[in-house]
Amino acid sequence: MAIDTETARRVAKLARIRVEDDALPALAAEFSAILGFIEQLNAVDVDGVEPMTSVTPQRLFRRDDVVTDGDRQAAVLANAPDAREGFFAVPKVVE
């Protein structure tokens, strides 16, 4: 399946990665090549086969629903590019 530049632009937007307009055609060509490779999967008969959800038959481990950690505000914020007054700081979200 050939991916056009509009689709490439939409995917970049969904992925929240800025791609300049002049880079879109090359990106679309790469997507097309990779998706072309993936399309081999259409040759497989998958009728009646359930999509795999877990590679090992075990159930996911569940712990007791109790508080085991917390009260570590300084550690949580220590790596933030911008933290103020005990919060993560971001540019204005709502106009």
Partner: peptide, 24 residues
């Protein structure tokens, strides 16, 4: 971006679910 595409509405079944069936 490839991952975003194969998970996007309209392609999820054709790509992602098919790949998980092949994985099985």
């Amino acid at each position: 971006m490839v991952g975003t595409y194969v998970l996007s509405a309209g392609f999820y079944d054709a790509y992602y679910n098919r790949a998980r069936r092949v994985r099985a």
